[in-house]
Design a protein around this nucleic acid. Sequence first.
DNA 1: TATGAATGAGCCTTCATTCAT
DNA 2: CATGAATGAAGGCTCATTCAT
Lengths: 206, 206, 206, 206
Amino acid sequence: MEKKHEVKTSVKDENLIEKRRHQMIRAAVTLFKEKGFHRATTREIAKEAGFSIGTLYEYIRTKEDVLYLVCDSIYNEVHDKLSQISAQNGTIEDLKTAIRHYYRVIDDMQDEFVVMYQESKSLPKGALEYVLNKELEMINIFRKILVDCVQNGELRLTEAQTNLYAHTIVVQGQMWAFRRWVLRKEYTLEQFTELQIEFVLNGMGK
Amino acid sequence: MEKKHEVKTSVKDENLIEKRRHQMIRAAVTLFKEKGFHRATTREIAKEAGFSIGTLYEYIRTKEDVLYLVCDSIYNEVHDKLSQISAQNGTIEDLKTAIRHYYRVIDDMQDEFVVMYQESKSLPKGALEYVLNKELEMINIFRKILVDCVQNGELRLTEAQTNLYAHTIVVQGQMWAFRRWVLRKEYTLEQFTELQIEFVLNGMGK
Amino acid sequence: MEKKHEVKTSVKDENLIEKRRHQMIRAAVTLFKEKGFHRATTREIAKEAGFSIGTLYEYIRTKEDVLYLVCDSIYNEVHDKLSQISAQNGTIEDLKTAIRHYYRVIDDMQDEFVVMYQESKSLPKGALEYVLNKELEMINIFRKILVDCVQNGELRLTEAQTNLYAHTIVVQGQMWAFRRWVLRKEYTLEQFTELQIEFVLNGMGK
Amino acid sequence: MEKKHEVKTSVKDENLIEKRRHQMIRAAVTLFKEKGFHRATTREIAKEAGFSIGTLYEYIRTKEDVLYLVCDSIYNEVHDKLSQISAQNGTIEDLKTAIRHYYRVIDDMQDEFVVMYQESKSLPKGALEYVLNKELEMINIFRKILVDCVQNGELRLTEAQTNLYAHTIVVQGQMWAFRRWVLRKEYTLEQFTELQIEFVLNGMGK
DNA sequence: TATGAATGAGCCTTCATTCAT
DNA sequence: CATGAATGAAGGCTCATTCAT
């Protein structure tokens, strides 16, 4: 597990840091979604966040820090939401619930997902590694559910299949965020979810 | 279908345009892959292409034109390669062949795929639409194959399923390009392909 | 003679002012020596001094005030140390003693000397004049000693020579601070001192 | 001997580089003299030089490069001027001529001297070393003249004296540039020169 | 008195684009 | 057609200074 990548701040009040960073992240997501990381200026981010450029830089050191904070915050939020259902007992029903849950999270955080996957390549090396690890953790959540199902006799999968299908489930969920320009025209979230669940379960031999 | 998005040039000689653009695209892919669209400078692109910045601007109008040319060229190359097998007769075997073919193209053009999907959001609006349309065409290739299979009685899918699964097939292929940092460690292209084919066919009820 | 250049403070307690300014000057000399006036930030100065930026500004009005305080303090210290031997009776021996004394002071306060001469140009006009006057006072100390020697018949110098040689003595001492990167390799302070004394006395016709 | 410290340029035409750098150096000396290195902005330098900020940066990489170019150019000019009289035959008269020559150069290039000695501390490490070496070369010019005089029997100096007095001669010349605010009021260059020559020769036992 | 968060003018530097040769 | 020097708008970031607590 990677050590948490720290972002330098010259402010001491922890509560204030929390508050300002929250403002900053909200502003950044809005702007990154609209124009991407590179076209969004630090001045715009500060303004959108409701404070001055000087203040912004009291809480970060480089523009890339903002991106890191955004990615980190999104992953944490996703993790929090997903881990609510992580207590499982290895049934197909659990898997379905988890997928439904995951898809709903993606729907809720569409913009964040798109921003994160589109822009994380601009992170500096250390931060990128940290974020990729978070991605692996997310895949692990599903891998573990699959492993439980296998151990429970609900699914019959090799290890290679287990790993790959965990990725597949995660990726199929991301589709909903990335391809909404076309999928939204044809499916509701519920339709999409149920179709994908059916497909995935069939795919794994029910 | 969108009209082909034109890129202004002040050069008349069509052969020269073709040649220079080819050099330019190769250079741009290399650089975009390495540092992304925004961090690659027009000077670097010109240099990598083997001519001067002045010459570069004889063949394009803006830096975004380079990106457009890159995306367009990649899509065309993919289309060319895929359309070689588009003449089908609606069997499951055809579908498998098409998927294998598609996955091999993705493997061959990993860098190009990643560049295209990561950077196309930086295209100006008109060009973006044109490129998204190309994406739809690609999905259509698979949709048609599925439709053929359905009409042939090889598959039993609703229209909603047909459309969605076309997307799914395309997206699962992209996984190979985007997640190579982790998938490459665990699977060869062949293993990945066969696992995914099995999963997809099962997913669609074989 | 210039009136003492005053530095505004919003603090009343004289003892506190004295104490804080002392801390501040020590900190500033350290930092100016290390990175120069312009590269040292007020924040750093405050931190090095052991209090907050807010407190720093309770005792000064601008960053240049810090520099002024530093220069003023150094000159005062040098004056104090030199004036201990200012009671003279016009012998060559007195001159030698004064020079030895001066050179020792320079050796003790190398960093301060370098800071003062390198950075005083950044003083605001009024403060600069005040400081230049202090420099003249220092030259006067030696001029007076020379005048005494002349009146005593120990030296035979025109007024023009007296003035110039006072400068020369002062400047040759500064050499020890400014050129220590090379002089230190070849001479000890004592060797340097005696060689220069011999040179100066010969120079003035013994 | 240090290798010449190179300054990157993106311009290829050597003549143009020469010309532009000359403009740039003239502009920089003017501004550095007036407000010092740190207070002079790159925009001001470009404007004073007669071209745009963009053009300035075609010929340098950082602001410190400008300072380096200034220092290098000054040293070279001084060297060129001094080396015209470097062919000596070891007489006291040669020494006098060299000193007169040197003092005239200092008088001609007062501003440049002051700028160089005041600001060179802001050079990046590598460049600073290179420039300090130039300073040593200058001292060497006088050291060699002294050595010649000693070998010729015109002067009787130990090696320690020879080295130190070379420094002293150089430093006494710099006085004229640094203390002109006071020396100019009392002496003409000629008076200053002759007094110092007399002093130096006496100092070395005639 | 002491603190430190907030401010924003201003600096250095980059880079897409133009145009004279 | 090709070249590359010139341009300047714009961006990231710093830091002296202020002021509410």
